[in-house]
Simulated scan of single mutants.
Amino acid sequence: MTVWDRPEPPTQPVPLDRERIVEAAIALADEGGLAAVSVRKVAARLDAGPMRLYRYISTKEELFDLMVDVVQAEIRPEEQPGDWREASRTLARRTRQASLRHEWLADLLGGRPAMGPNGLAVTEATLTAFDGLADVDTVMRAVETVSAYFIGAIRREIANLRAERATGLSKHEWQRASGPHVTRMLATGRFPALAKAVYDGTDVDAETSFETGLEWVLDAVALKLTRPST
């Protein structure tokens, strides 16, 4: 029985329910990442005994599942997107925006499918936009391909943000600090392709990079969704 199917215990003198538990866990994660979330810390934030929380959740993994589903409500589109490209863009962009608000989400993306009500609604909206375009296996591979792109891009962006905080250096400050070493290495002539990228490439921000890559992936998926002439 999943955590969503299991009934909550009767109300105790100090009010407690899964919604309050998850809200407290998300607040802790927003402040300090997933490492800051434990049953003991959530219980302390709610001024409750840790054992009481185990009447509502069985494991920390269940708590993470509930946290993700709450954030899936932020990702879920308000209206059904008009076509598969717009549905894919909406899913990618809203997942990125949610991950920038809740950086811990990036650590939980890409695992087993989200089975909570909001996660299922997001998947339903996405698959509905592909209805009638191709057989179900092709559609599933298309959705997986787009998801693999934006999850990877989001994780890279979040990793860079964390690195900036850890080092105290922005992207450009880090590049300047690393410049002498990179210049010496490129001057050896051993890395001509990298040298061309460094000296001739255009530096773009994370959002531009994300949007460009997304459109390229959607263009590639579109070729697979094109029906052969009959």
Rank of each mutant, 00 (worst) to 15 (best):
M1K: 07
T2D: 01
V3C: 03
D5L: 06
R6F: 01
R6T: 02
T11Q: 14
V14R: 15
P15V: 08
D17E: 09
V22R: 05
A25M: 06
A27L: 14
A29V: 04
A29S: 10
E31S: 05
A35C: 02
V39E: 00
V42W: 02
L46Q: 09
P50Q: 01
M51A: 11
R52H: 03
L53T: 03
S58Q: 14
L63M: 08
L63I: 03
D65P: 03
V68P: 08
V70Q: 14
Q72D: 12
A73H: 00
I75D: 02
R76Y: 04
A92I: 02
A92N: 01
L100R: 13
H102V: 11
E103F: 13
E103K: 14
L105I: 11
D107N: 14
D107H: 14
P113F: 04
M115L: 11
G116M: 00
G116F: 07
P117M: 07
L120G: 04
E124V: 01
A125Y: 04
A125L: 07
T126R: 07
L127G: 02
L127R: 03
L127E: 01
L127V: 00
D135F: 07
D137G: 05
M140I: 06
M140F: 01
V143S: 04
T145H: 07
T145M: 13
A148I: 05
G152K: 10
A153G: 02
I158L: 07
N160R: 04
L161K: 14
R162V: 03
A163D: 12
A163E: 11
S170F: 05
E173K: 06
Q175T: 03
A177C: 11
A177D: 08
H181Q: 09
T183W: 10
R184D: 04
T188M: 09
P192Q: 02
K196Y: 13
D200A: 13
G201T: 00
V204D: 15
V204N: 12
D205G: 09
F210L: 09
E215V: 14
W216T: 15
D219C: 14
A220M: 10
V221F: 11
V221E: 09
K224R: 12
T226I: 02
